[in-house]
């Protein structure tokens, strides 16, 4: 895989998610193109490369925006998305042999289970963090279950938008220079 292309695409997608995608947000959640990018990489890259790509993408998401804020305090937690993305990538790696990889619908459809896995890991970590009375939680004032339900909506929405994003990514497939032997496995 062409690492330079991945890095550029990753920065592009994370910026897009945090700056432009709120235009089409529903219920405060805007679709994630970063997730679609990671799914796309996980479909074509070797296993270890896909897992590292997932980890890097998740870590950048963790670090780029404070996860929680209360009063004049904000908290950046490296880990919840990073671990969630690794967990999600693992799921896509298991499922990738069952789908037509070069189909944008497959990329979009796999984004939904990917983000559900990410959300589960993310919620688990934040619930553990919530055991500390001093911790700030992202759903401060709300309920964890409603947060999870919102994230499920987010996953479905990202899957729908992911079809279009997947089509664009598949269009750029030659630039990525994926190892062809991976596709035959």
């Amino acid at each position: 895989m062409n690492l330079g292309v991945f890095v550029i695409a990753l920065f592009f997608c994370v910026s897009l998610d945090s700056s432009l995608m709120p235009v089409i947000s529903i219920g405060g959640f805007s679709p994630s193109t970063t997730a679609t990018l990671v799914v796309f990489v996980a479909l074509f890259a070797p296993r270890s490369v896909a897992l590292w790509a997932g980890l890097a993408a998740g870590l950048l998401m963790d670090l780029s925006i404070p996860a929680a804020a209360a009063g004049d305090r904000s908290l950046v937690v490296p880990g919840p998305y990073a671990i969630g993305f690794v967990f999600g990538t693992q799921l896509v790696l298991l499922l990738r042999s069952m789908v037509f990889r070069r189909n944008p619908i497959a990329v979009g459809l796999l984004t939904t289970p990917f983000l559900i896995a990410v959300s589960l890991a993310w919620m688990a970590i934040w619930l553990i963090r919530g055991l500390d009375a001093d911790s700030i939680l992202p759903w401060a004032g709300g309920h964890a279950l409603s947060e999870l339900l919102s994230r499920l909506v987010w996953a479905v929405m990202s899957g729908a938008v992911g079809i279009g994003t997947g089509w664009l990514l598949l269009f750029s497939w030659p630039v990525w220079r994926f190892d062809q032997s991976v596709l035959r496995r």
Partner: peptide
């Protein structure tokens, strides 16, 4: 991943002195 898991469950008072700076850089 294990390191990140440990870091991600550290108490807020241990994270705030440095994680914000790394976030700014990233």
């Amino acid at each position: 991943v294990l390191c990140l898991l440990i870091v991600s469950i550290l108490p807020a008072r241990w994270l705030t002195p440095w994680s914000g700076r790394i976030g700014e850089l990233a």
